[in-house]
């Protein structure tokens, strides 16, 4: 496996399992499109367009990738099947790399920041709470002391859901009653983490559609209130995106970034039939790295995003 050797075999297999569908249905088509052709013609580019669009890459990014490939074809004159295949991979990897997607190598936190505060945001039903449970598991496994904050005080039983995760993973959860002020929960959590000398704080927030102005303002407030305890908190604002979401994910990234300066992305439900191409599109338009991917419902089913492995797995 060469440069991927730091990935255990299990991890790779899990990701393969999750991406199996993607590979066979989408990029499998590309091989067919290219097979038997000695150079890139309009037909191949058309098929390439179809493949990218059906992976939710979006018109804009698809055109950008195709332009890049066309430019290379014009420059290098002749392109064979295998060359095109690797060029496509390279272009996608490069798009991701430009935004540091997949630079992380471990469930680690930057040195010198304690506690490291992560605030998790996203629209309804993308898997924020589940992702937090998995993150807590991984940080704990890496020897960190973790505290969770149940600041989704709106959705019915959201606090209970996080508490159950807390029990599963055996980390403390700071919570108030349903309907209480989420900013106050966040404040309490950070304060408690400081006094407990925790390493990582993860704040859950209620799902909200990004076009609800008042709810977006609430996020800004939660963030501001935490800064009363730790001036530069939250250090990480993690936007959770559902892999099955289409072009609206771009708008989500835009609005959440505007409200809270999102600086990391998690892509969930990649174990389904959804293609995950949305990551490429978002990495292209926003300069936010993809950090994590969710590939199942178990607490082990969260991985660090690795751009090369990700693209490799698509083309395997």
């Amino acid at each position: 496996m060469g440069i991927f050797s730091f990935f255990s075999k299990d991890k790779k297999q899990d990701l393969d399992k999750g991406l199996e569908k993607t590979r066979s249905s989408v990029f499998g088509k590309l091989s067919k499109a290219i097979a038997g052709k000695s150079k890139v013609d309009d037909e191949v580019l058309d098929q390439l367009e179809e493949i990218l669009v059906t992976s939710d890459v979006g018109v804009h990014t698809t055109l950008k990738i195709i332009e890049r490939i066309e430019a290379r074809v014009a420059r290098d004159k002749y392109l064979g099947t295998s060359e095109l295949n690797s060029i496509l991979k390279e272009e996608i990897v490069e798009l991701l790399q430009e935004n540091n997607s997949g630079d992380g190598t471990d469930f680690d936190i930057p040195a010198g920041i304690k506690p490291y505060v992560i605030m998790v945001v996203g629209v309804n039903g993308v898997g924020k709470t589940t992702t937090i449970g998995k993150l807590a598991y991984n940080f704990k496994k890496a020897g960190k002391k973790v505290v969770l904050g149940a600041a989704d005080t709106f959705r019915a039983a959201a606090v209970d859901q996080l508490k159950i995760w807390g029990q599963r993973v055996d980390v403390p959860v700071v919570a108030q009653t349903m309907g209480s002020d989420p900013a106050s929960v966040a404040f309490d959590t950070v304060k408690s983490a400081v006094s407990q000398q925790a390493d990582v704080v993860i704040i859950d927030t209620a799902g909200r559609l990004h076009n609800k102005i008042n709810l977006m303002k609430e996020l800004t407030k939660i963030k501001t209130v935490m800064q009363k305890v730790i001036a530069d908190a939250p250090h990480e604002i993690l936007l959770v995106l559902d892999a099955s979401t289409g072009q609206n994910a771009i708008e989500q990234a835009r609005q959440f970034t505007a409200a809270t300066e999102v600086n990391a992305l998690a892509l969930t439900k990649l174990d389904g039939t959804a293609k995950g191409g949305v990551v490429i599109g978002i990495s292209d338009q926003f300069k936010i790295p993809v950090k994590y991917i969710g590939i199942g419902e178990r607490m082990e089913d969260l991985q660090l995003f690795d751009r090369k492995l990700f693209v490799e797995s698509l083309f395997d």
Partner: peptide, 15 residues
């Protein structure tokens, strides 16, 4: 089904 679903909608609905 989530109205924000992308290209995967066809696969999932069909399945």
């Amino acid at each position: 089904v989530d109205s924000m679903t992308g290209q995967d909608a066809v696969n999932t609905a069909k399945a």
